[in-house]
Design a binder for these strands. Structure first.
Length: 264
DNA sequence: ATGGTGGGTAGCCCA
């Protein structure tokens, strides 16, 4: 059994207390973090090692973005893609060397895309679409059992958002973004593990804005975080779940952790 | 239609 987790942590240094709480509660073998918001030398590697996660691949930058994969299983860093070609740290790829040997685990933080869903007036929206197009070109070349997890910043299905109608023109749920993400999915034939285990139209959210007084009452969530796998690997996923209570922990991230257990 | 909150950094950017 191998359990993989993904969590947009929104500053790993600030949130080490809840990361520790999570690792003790769920004990995943591997945790993929996004938005670590620090450089590699600032990453709290010693604290992770003390918790048993001594195998680490960090792709960080100053202040913004940044991803890290921490593991109890030996791993080897294999790639750091810059799908915007602008130096932002949004991806790290590793290969598992112990349990789950041979699996390639891609940890990605797709750009949010700004506020206006029109690349002519909002360059960030165009950059988001271009990032996904370059990921698609890359996905066409994958020839090993792989998993890609992280904050995709797109909620593709109607039941992935609190109101499909009200979010059609909101960045993260526009038809253009969903089409672009679907082309990425089809380029490799990725299986959406989350939605294979929590079937639409069942509610499935992984993010709630900080700008909501009571996130539980309004429940204006979106499924921005994903765990996708090559089809043959996805068939070995025995369990998939969320830790929604983490949204209520002290000084929470606005995202919650997602987990998938594999029988390999 | 607007502003609401949170993080990092250094006088605003990003989500």
């Amino acid at each position: 059994m191998v359990t993989i987790a993904t969590w947009n942590i929104n500053s790993v240094r600030l949130r080490m207390p809840i990361v520790e709480r999570f690792l003790k509660a769920e004990a995943p073998d591997v945790l993929c973090l996004q938005e670590i918001k620090c450089q590699e030398f600032q990453f709290p590697a010693k604290a992770f090692a003390k918790l048993g996660y001594k195998h680490i691949a960090v792709h960080g930058q100053k202040g913004y973005h940044g991803v890290a994969t921490v593991s109890r299983i030996p791993l080897r860093e294999v790639s750091r893609h810059d799908w915007q070609d602008n130096g932002e740290a949004r991806h790290v790829g590793v290969e598992l060397l112990g349990a789950g040997q041979g699996m390639v685990l891609e940890n990605v933080y797709v750009p949010a895309g700004g506020d206006v869903p029109d690349r002519k007036v909002n360059a960030k929206f165009g950059q988001k679409l271009d990032f996904l197009d370059r990921m698609t070109r890359w996905a066409e070349t994958i020839d090993r059992p792989s998993m890609i997890v992280g904050d995709f910043n797109i909620a593709p299905l109607e039941s992935d958002v609190w109101s499909h109608k009200q979010l059609l023109k909101v960045v993260s749920h526009t038809p253009l973004e969903v089409e672009t993400l679907n082309r990425f999915r089809d380029a490799h034939g990725w299986s959406d593990i989350g939605r294979e285990h929590i079937l639409a139209p069942e509610r499935y959210f992984s993010w709630w804005s900080y700008r909501s007084k009571d996130w539980r009452v309004n429940d204006r969530g979106r499924r921005l975080d994903h765990m996708w796998a090559s089809p043959q690997l996805a068939k070995q996923a025995t369990r998939h779940w969320l830790l929604e209570e983490a949204r209520d922990w002290e000084k929470p991230s606005d995202h919650i952790p997602l987990m998938t257990q594999f029988s390999l």
